[in-house]
Design a protein around this nucleic acid. Structure first.
Length: 769
DNA sequence: ACTAATAACATTTTT
DNA sequence: TGTTATTAGT
């Protein structure tokens, strides 16, 4: 209320902050101070006397919520910041659903299924329905169901919708509607929701219980939404439910940075906002404070290739800056080595700290080469994403026990631990139990705990073991309200036998599992301590801990992000971040833009927006790299440069000629070819028979590499000028010249796609056509 | 029912 | 290439 520094804002930013009379849409170009506007706006609302608990601020990721909270705490006092309703859609609405659980027929401690749980449940259902497991892939079915939920389509509506049926039929999975119906029922049976359900049930709650809706409508005097371009229809609808009367809403986003449509995000939400909220104000933040002019204009020149966007002109008033450097490498390994070298350089001579450098890639799989190169060069680095701590097997197992203690109906948790550690309840038994449960329409737990009531053909011994298991869980359940999470966690680890099982091994991977388990238990301790400190001496229970962890995916970075390290991450996870120097790597057709996107123009545009996001992360230096050859799925593949490279206005680019652009020199074979590509290094290789299925599916299939290897020696000598050959990596080409004899024999070949190459015949792998 | 071996499989992004 | 599911053997 006192020291709100509106002078820190430019005129448009200030207007956007100060306009609070009605709905507003803030279109915020990359680096234009979007978060700044949001935080100042919240601070402003507070300074006007609005209570913190009557402000709802929704973000897309936990990270964004954390950051915003921290920044607001700097502006106003911490006490107020803590009382804001600020968090991700999922965490905020899960909180509301727990408070209103009775209205939707769930218990307060309902479980949240992660994607693995969902897929596993769908697999069970597919089996029960005796559908062909080859055609019904859980992931595909789940994505159809998820898409429906994101559009607020319930099972009954799904089943009566001929269009959806047609789409499923086209995907060869016409029974998806029925699976959806059963999946929905089974989740309820298990007292569980998946991520999408959190939104669906919130919508249903508000739609069917007007008194509850008006409670929240009244409570929230102002609603702010960050990254509005990433919201899906369900989220859009919920925001409308909450704000339709007061119309006190401000959404912020950038249509050019919408990169989550695969998850149901719908750009239309941002485009139709103005139609929905009739008298809404539009603010455009067009000045980029982050990047040099070159970078901003290069990014602009790329995004221009997309159609259908909100017009805006992002500009920078910083220096012109360096052009964007483009490097071409021979292989993915060289790309990594080259980038590492370049990083050492800019660190040493340009004094750019490790923290200010990022490697951005399209797919997580690309991180490996960089890891190795960085280790070799002693460059400190840190990888974001990948599998999180909570995804590891030993951690998931332990958490399954926790979940079971809180909610014994949790079917997926039961399946996970009923026979871990091994207690003689095998697959056959589990199948019997599941059959009985689904026939009687009850949860697995019900059958397990009342075995005699259900005629499940199980022998005495197994029955006794099941009884023991039930008692074990009952024992934990008896403590869920009396013991705090940390104590109960240790108790469960001990008594379940997990502790013993994990601590019996001495192998390095056993040690790592032990460490993870220990870290988990320590983490619970820490969680309990923090909570006690924050909200007094109230006992912190296991259910609180589960609620906390079920909606976070990113590993806690608390002690690690202090340290000075180069960041390696996917472009998706880089959104919202900025670095002095950015390397966007793997700019090759079919990788970035990704192969999956090549078929549809819509997805192609999304890839382009992704590229736009990547470029605009850079403050000063931006490097683009691509390789001619890349290991994919274990095989080396030839790659051509990304079409995106041509979409950048050339005046902003400098193509750095590095040595690898020149024809391959022998040295390169020594360094990279020998190990991997020499035929005689791998005499063991079994000449694989060509798979008939592959032959037919791709139509024309040339000789597989293995066959080519066999032919190499016999054919190399018979080469003449004009011979057409097919090289395993470079493709088709014509021999232009021959030189040298014996082991020095070389051929100059003009390849259709790659241009002229010198091949050392003793190494080259090719067939004569 | 458990373990080891083999086959299959899928490789984009995440609350 | 790596993981994960299925199978065969104990």
């Amino acid at each position: 209320m006192n020291n709100l520094k509106l002078d820190d804002l430019n005129p448009v930013q200030r207007e956007a902050v100060l306009y609070c009379d009605g709905p507003s849409l803030v279109i915020a170009g990359a680096g234009s101070g979007k978060t700044r506007v949001l935080t100042y706006k919240i601070a402003y609302l507070l300074s006007q006397g609005m209570e913190p608990w009557s402000i709802l601020a929704l973000t897309f990721t936990n990270k964004a919520a954390e950051e915003m909270k921290a920044r607001i705490a700097q502006q106003v006092d911490l006490f107020q910041a803590q009382r804001l309703w600020m968090g991700t859609f999922h965490s905020i609405f899960a909180r509301i659903l727990r408070m209103e659980h009775e209205a939707i027929g769930f218990s307060q401690d309902f479980t949240i299924y992660d994607t693995t749980d969902s897929k596993s449940l769908i697999r069970s259902i597919i089996r029960e329905m005796q559908l062909d497991e080859k055609t019904y892939k859980p992931a595909t079915v789940l994505s159809h169901i998820s898409a429906a939920k994101n559009r607020l389509i319930l099972p009954s509506q799904y089943q009566s919708n001929p269009q959806l049926y047609k789409a499923d039929l086209a995907s060869k999975i016409p029974a998806t509607g029925e699976i959806y119906k059963r999946y929905w029922a089974r989740c309820r049976q298990a007292d569980a929701m998946d991520f999408d359900d959190i939104l669906v049930y919130t919508y249903l709650l508000f739609a069917h219980k007007p008194e509850i809706l008006s409670k929240y409508e009244n409570r929230f005097d102002f609603v702010l939404v960050d990254e509005y371009q990433d919201t899906n229809y369900a989220q859009h609808a919920i925001v409308w439910q909450l704000t339709q009367h007061k119309k006190k809403v401000c959404v912020v986003g950038d249509d050019a940075q919408s990169i989550y449509s695969f998850r149901g995000a719908n750009i239309d939400n941002i485009l139709t906002f103005q139609q929905l909220y009739k008298d809404s104000k539009l603010f455009k933040l067009e000045r980029n404070y982050r990047s040099t002019q070159n970078i901003v204009e290069a990014a602009n020149s790329v995004i221009k290739h997309n159609r259908g966007q909100i017009y805006k002109e992002v500009y920078s008033e910083k220096v012109k800056g360096d052009p964007i450097h483009v490097f071409n490498y021979y292989s993915d390994l060289e790309e990594a080595a080259g980038v590492a070298k370049k990083i050492l350089n800019i660190n040493q001579y340009d004094h750019i700290g490790w923290n200010e450098i990022a490697i951005l890639y399209r797919t997580n799989a690309q991180s490996r080469a960089f890891e190795e190169a960085f280790r070799k060069q002693d460059i400190p680095y840190r990888i974001f994403g990948g599998l999180s701590f909570y995804q590891r097997k030993e951690v998931k197992d332990m958490i399954a026990y926790f979940r079971l203690a809180v909610n014994p109906n949790d079917e997926e948790a039961i399946k996970r631990v009923i026979n871990y550690p091994v207690r003689g309840i095998g697959d056959t038994t589990l199948q019997k139990i599941m059959k009985a449960a689904s026939e009687q329409n009850v949860s697995l737990w019900k059958v397990l705990s009342h075995l005699s009531d259900y005629s499940v053909g199980i022998n005495r011994g197994t029955e006794a073991r099941i009884c023991n298991f039930v008692q074990l869980i009952e024992g934990f359940r008896a403590c869920i309200t009396t013991m705090d999470a940390a104590k109960l966690g240790r108790k469960i680890a001990q008594e379940s036998g997990v502790m013993q099982d994990i601590f019996k091994g001495r192998e390095p991977e056993d040690i790592s599992r032990q460490e993870n388990l220990q870290e988990l238990l320590d983490g619970i301790n820490q969680f309990v301590d923090e909570r006690v400190e924050e909200e007094g001496s109230e006992r912190i229970l296991m259910t609180h801990y589960l609620q906390e962890i079920s909606l976070i995916s990113d590993l806690d970075e608390s002690d690690d992000n202090q340290t000075d390290k180069v960041s390696l991450m996917t472009i998706h996870s880089a959104k919202g971040l900025e670095f002095s120097a950015v390397f966007i790597v793997g700019l090759e057709e079919n990788l970035f833009p990704n192969q999956m996107a090549m078929t549809s123009p819509r997805e192609m545009e999304e890839e382009r927006r992704l590229f736009y996001v990547a470029l605009t992360r850079a403050k000063e230096l931006c490097f683009l790299t691509h390789a001619k050859n890349r290991y994919r799925y274990g095989k080396s593949e030839f790659c051509s440069p990304s079409s995106f490279l041509e979409e950048i206005d050339p005046q902003f680019i400098k193509r750095d000629q590095n040595e690898t652009n020149t024809p391959i020199r022998p040295r390169r074979f020594e360094r990279y070819g020998l190990e991997e590509h020499l035929p005689f290094r791998r005499p063991i290789t079994t000449p694989q028979v060509q798979r008939p299925s592959q032959m037919t599916s791709t139509g024309v299939r040339v000789a597989t590499p293995e066959v080519a290897v066999e032919k190499t020696n016999t054919n190399a000598g018979t080469l003449t000028i004009g011979t057409m050959i097919e090289h395993t990596r470079f493709g088709r080409g014509v021999v232009k010249a021959l030189s040298g004899t014996g082991i020095d024999a070389k051929a100059t070949v003009d390849f259709e796609n790659v241009g002229v190459k010198q091949l050392l015949l003793r190494f080259a792998k090719f067939t004569i056509l």
